[in-house]
Design a binder for these strands. Structure first.
Lengths: 232, 232
DNA sequence: CTTGTTCTGATACGGTGTATCGAAAGCTAC
DNA sequence: GTAGCTTTCGATACACCGTATCAGAACAAG
């Protein structure tokens, strides 16, 4: 229907030194998002980071959504190529690769899974993932598809939740203990109603895992599940 | 630190027939989000749906974010109580329960995992999940925690991606075939570069699964993984 | 009736994405 | 070199957003 961004060429640079390009715009937007959060990415701010008015950007990008899409693709380019001798090593490297980028660029986690992406870097990532998986001897396309999709989906959710918690903590003081301190009184009052005995016990006694441990654990579950489905 | 919403009482209703309440506001907001998308939820629009100015809402809610949080909690209240004779049946019912709500209220998927929620309905959901799980004899808190967290995270990602795709399709015409039609030329051109042979083959030959099948498949993997970790 | 408290709506501020359009700047053709 | 055409730019404007401020209305208590 409408042309995808990737389809449209950059505006020509007949004019002498137009020091602007999609790449530079995206880079500026990413820097802004990295340092001030995704909400700080506005066409005005990105523009003025490049000494340009907001309207100038519209030569390179049709819409703000397109800019975000380009940012996502740029982030995909940062994911290291999946590698590993076995299929589970490959899947695991994919997962941790995506997580790494998301922890470096928190806005990436917010955008992940928000809409389908088909940029060149995203495609390249898919390509690398597929070939790496098949190099391990896993050549049933159905299985590969299912496994990849599941791992991707898991990573989206895990990373999103992890980043969300991290931001919430940071928002209310610096410390994690501080965050617990802030919500504790409320939780205690709720528990005092007696309506949530299991939750109360859980908060009390459940082992408190680090974020990476939770991530790793879920991933282990997932891989083990795929493994055992391969045996049939 | 700052008071949580759940802490603050509703404004008193001394004044005769103040036909407003947090509940009514949240309900109006949800209706708006259901029918016109999350972006359509603005204090002005919610207000005028209740014959009120935007400022009036600030008696009941401190911030728009709070309204969104209340919406999420209300959505949690719609999740049917988890049930099942075995722990995997319980986990599975949790997963499909959340997915059901997210498909009914797409904005829920967008908000899921966005920030930590601690509303009464959310707590009640957690309570029900925990007790249902323990009723099946699964009483190691560590295992329960890990399993629940993993399933939750998986559902967040899965639902988010599913809803995103569904919305993208709907955005470009009604039909799914139409969406493929829109992106097909672009993909073909990308494939023509020869840079993505594996992806090309994959698009061609991979079995095309329905959304529910993908969801169910991933869930199966996950449960099987947990199951086999229980055996050790 | 007066006083005090509680609530409301109007107004306003600073921000957003983007449509419109006149002016400038560059290239092409003569 | 100059006229004309095409491409880009920036100013301005519009509609909308979340929310701070504050005068005054509506009620309760004395």
């Amino acid at each position: 229907m409408t042309d995808l961004i990737w389809d449209r060429p950059e505006p020509s640079e007949r004019r002498a030194p137009s020091p602007l390009s999609r790449q530079r715009i995206v880079r500026a937007a990413i820097e802004l998002a990295d340092s001030a959060g995704l909400d700080a990415v506005s066409l005005r701010k990105v523009g003025s980071a490049l000494d340009a008015g907001p309207m100038r950007l519209y030569r390179y990008v049709d819409t703000k959504d397109e800019l975000l899409t380009l940012m996502v693709d740029a982030a995909y380019a940062e994911i290291p190529a999946p590698a590993g001798a076995t299929w589970d090593a490959v899947l695991s490297s994919i997962a941790t690769g995506i997580r790494g980028v998301a922890l470096r660029h928190e806005w990436f986690a917010e955008l992940l899974g928000g809409r389908p992406h088909l940029g060149p870097a995203t495609l390249a990532h898919g390509e690398a993932a597929l070939t790496a998986l098949r190099a391990t001897g896993l050549d049933d396309l159905g299985t590969v598809t299912g496994a990849l999709a599941t791992v991707n989906v898991y990573v989206i959710g895990a990373v999103r939740k992890e980043v969300a918690e991290r931001r919430a903590q940071r928002a209310s003081g610096l410390d994690q203990r501080q965050w617990q301190h802030a919500t504790a009184p409320y939780l205690l009052r709720m528990f005092a109603t007696g309506d949530y005995p299991a939750m109360e016990e859980w908060v009390h006694d459940a082992p408190h895992l680090q974020a990476d441990e939770v991530f790793e654990l879920g991933l282990t579950y997932l891989l083990e599940g795929i493994r055992s489905s391969l045996r049939n």
